[in-house]
Amino acid sequence: MRNPDLTQLREAVRTEIARAFKAAGFARPRDIARQVCAAHPENISALGGRLAEDALTDLARRELKHNTQQRESPSQMGLPGVPEALAIQLPPAISI
Rank of each mutant, 00 (worst) to 15 (best):
M1A: 15
R2A: 15
R2I: 15
R2S: 15
N3T: 05
P4A: 04
L6K: 05
L6Q: 03
T7D: 14
Q8Y: 09
Q8V: 14
L9Y: 03
E11A: 14
E11V: 15
A12L: 00
A12D: 02
T15Q: 02
I17D: 03
I17T: 06
A18V: 05
A18R: 07
A18L: 05
R19K: 12
R19Y: 05
A20K: 07
A23T: 02
A23E: 02
A23C: 04
A24C: 04
G25Y: 08
G25L: 01
G25V: 02
G25N: 09
A27L: 05
A27M: 06
R28T: 06
P29H: 12
R30S: 09
D31N: 06
I32L: 04
I32P: 01
R34Q: 13
V36G: 03
A38C: 10
A38W: 03
N43D: 11
N43S: 13
I44M: 11
S45L: 09
S45H: 13
A46G: 08
A46N: 12
A46F: 01
L47R: 02
G48P: 00
G48V: 04
G48Y: 02
G49C: 02
G49F: 06
A52Y: 07
A52M: 08
A52T: 02
D54R: 14
D54E: 15
L56M: 13
L56G: 02
L56F: 10
L59D: 08
L59A: 02
A60I: 07
A60F: 12
R61L: 14
R61D: 13
R62A: 06
R62Y: 11
R62T: 06
E63V: 13
E63C: 03
K65R: 14
H66N: 11
H66S: 15
N67C: 15
T68P: 05
T68H: 09
T68I: 15
Q69I: 13
Q69C: 08
Q70F: 12
R71T: 11
E72V: 13
E72T: 09
E72A: 12
S73T: 14
P74Y: 08
P74H: 01
P74E: 06
P74A: 13
S75C: 10
S75L: 14
M77W: 03
M77G: 08
G78C: 03
G78L: 13
L79P: 01
P80M: 11
G81A: 08
V82A: 05
P83W: 14
E84G: 00
L86S: 02
L86F: 13
A87F: 07
A87Y: 07
A87P: 07
A87D: 06
A87L: 04
I88S: 00
I88E: 07
Q89F: 00
L90N: 03
P91C: 00
P92R: 06
P92C: 07
S95L: 01
